[in-house]
Nucleic acid binder design. Structure first.
Lengths: 353, 353
DNA sequence: TTGAAAGCGCTAACAG
DNA sequence: CTGTTAGCGCTTTCAA
């Protein structure tokens, strides 16, 4: 109503002018800083509301030489785990006034090659540039696929909290993937399976704990580990991997998939081939997504507590913001095998066709 | 290496000093503005890289009096539709240098009452405050549940692009919900169902087109519309609604759910009760989520092209940023009914027990 | 209790 | 082609 210029948002100066005090007072009043009389404060707040004044946090950060925003590096929200992590992060950050700024990687999952190989940095490494330029104080990274060493390098520019993956020397909150994967494998082993295959995603350092644990468990059982790499982590990638695996000779009686999406892809193909799950093929996923628990799906999976990881990551980020020099946290939680109907002892009719 | 202060990020001044030119030149060089000799530019860029200089976009925005960030108001990423919309938005924005800043509503879905009823603003209306304080130039809103009038009010403070919902006078990209809902209902009608129930979510203006279309379709068929409101939009909410509906008298032979999650919740309960889908109960969802298409689920659903909506919203946002005074866009797309195995003619054994 | 002044990192006329 | 100067909106000494 009493606005001077219609389009320009009100500033502290406007408020100060309206009340008849200096900008300093307005600034103080807004931050609840001491040194402003109750009366003046009230008048200021009232005028501010009347003028529709909104503090400009960017300007404040600039003046204060601090970074209050947190960056979030998340690639594929369509994978439930990441959505859960995201929900957790948001939950942890909600009570505070920290903005969340999204960062992205260069390319995504699945189809397509690595594109052109420009200069030095190849494929889809993290590009934290935009986040840094936005001056976030810390970035929570849930989908970094760069090698550990590279992550540490990135962390030189901006503090990083790694979620669902451990990176030595960098704040990390994760779940014990080796334990989870081993549990799934041993579950199948205990059921009597001997021809077990593992479907993993594309190779990325720090993302192969599940595969290694599978290898180890098989090795301990004196069985040959069979591993096939899917071209991604999606259901479609799982289907692609499964087509070769299930149609080929020596079909496995059980499959341990790197995640639920991949497992669901395998399931689709298996069912399409007329195979019954679990009678002809036992199947385990990883993530314990909601879909896994649906009637008619009943996918045995490993719950890694994604939401809790997100919350923990959010808190770690807050902590890092408050104590830039605190030692890196290393929070490891234990996953939980959730047995459902997709796993059973191997059928007798395991010979070809 | 040649950094002055180890922790403080390099600034244009640092670069200027290093090269022996003025700050202005550095600024110009970085924006590719004319008026800098090739030689100088190269020297500047080289020094910048050496010093690890990163432009501070916040400071730039401040000086330029513009807002280059886009806000994203997204509540529940765990619902695939929103994840898809998000993916689309990101895709549209990726090639540009626009940061995406997340905004949140006050509370979320499902359980729990409306909390205390403070002052004037109740439940979980949008709180665009943080986004405004972050000085975003436009906010893309996919989960606003406020009344249209309120949205228009909000849009006075910051341009809004409404996704998946039409708000007169505000940029809107959405799918024709009435058409989709009617298609689903008529599909069931055509199969011969007469006892059809609709499961809707909590009431919010501008989110009831599906319900109204259901009512209308039933009315046109001369049948009584039966509607039950779930306490949210989640699978759990669907289960809750279904328990009453399926156990009670006059059990419907078909259910039209507001979305897939709700439908899946109904499915769980139905199956748990020993009802067969579709023999005893036909079921339609809405969103055509990936889960709907899985073998063993086969949920008939309505595809609203969430990803495309996201892309369109992103472009609309970009456009709004570029042309603040352009007339509001109103982009309506047509949904597509995807028939799967969850719908069939009503069985004969539709009497009680 | 209040205000003046300097500065955060950057842009944008306007002069040399 | 290059540098000077004045802000952007806000915080923060330091005096009054």
């Amino acid at each position: 109503m009493t606005t001077a210029d219609p389009r320009r948002p009100a500033t502290q100066s406007d408020v100060a002018r309206a009340v008849g005090v200096s900008r300093t007072l307005v600034s103080f009043a807004f931050r609840g800083a001491p040194g402003v009389s109750e009366e003046t404060r009230r008048a200021i707040l009232e005028a501010a509301k009347r003028l529709g004044y909104r503090p400009n946090v960017a300007a404040a950060d600039l003046a204060r030489k601090r970074a209050s925003a947190v960056g979030l590096h998340l690639l594929d929200l369509r994978n439930e785990v990441y959505a859960d992590i995201f929900a957790g992060v948001r939950e942890a950050l909600a009570p505070t006034a920290h903005r969340i700024i999204l960062g992205v990687a260069r390319s995504s999952d699945g189809v397509g090659g690595r594109g052109g190989e420009h200069g030095g940095t190849g494929g889809d490494e993290a590009d934290l540039g935009p986040l840094i330029e936005a001056r976030v104080g810390v970035v929570i990274a849930a989908t970094l696929i760069d090698p550990d060493e590279r992550v540490r390098e990135l962390a030189l520019d901006v503090p990083i909290v790694s979620v669902a993956r451990r990176v030595e020397g960098v704040d990390s909150v994760y779940s014990d993937d080796a334990a989870g994967s081993r549990a799934a494998t041993e579950h199948l082993l205990a059921l009597g399976h001997t021809r077990i295959a593992h479907i993993t995603g594309p190779y990325h350092e720090g993302m192969h704990a599940r595969r290694r644990a599978f290898d180890a468990a098989m090795h301990d059982a004196g069985l040959p580990p069979r591993v096939v790499a899917a071209p991604g982590h999606s259901l479609a990638a799982g289907e692609e991997a499964a087509r070769a695996l299930l149609a080929g000779p020596e079909r496995p009686t059980a499959v341990v998939a790197h995640n639920d999406q991949l497992a669901l892809g395998v399931r689709e193909v298996a069912l399409g081939l007329g195979l019954r799950v679990p009678e002809d093929l036992s199947l385990t996923g990883y993530d314990d997504s909601r879909t896994a628990g649906l009637a008619g799906i009943g996918l045995t999976s490993v719950d890694l507590g994604a939401h809790a990881l997100g919350v923990a990551a959010g808190m770690a980020a807050l902590n890092r913001l408050a104590y830039p020099n605190a030692p890196a946290v290393d929070e490891c939680s234990l996953p939980r095998l959730v047995v459902r109907g997709s796993t059973a002892p191997p059928g007798r009719s395991s010979s070809d066709s």
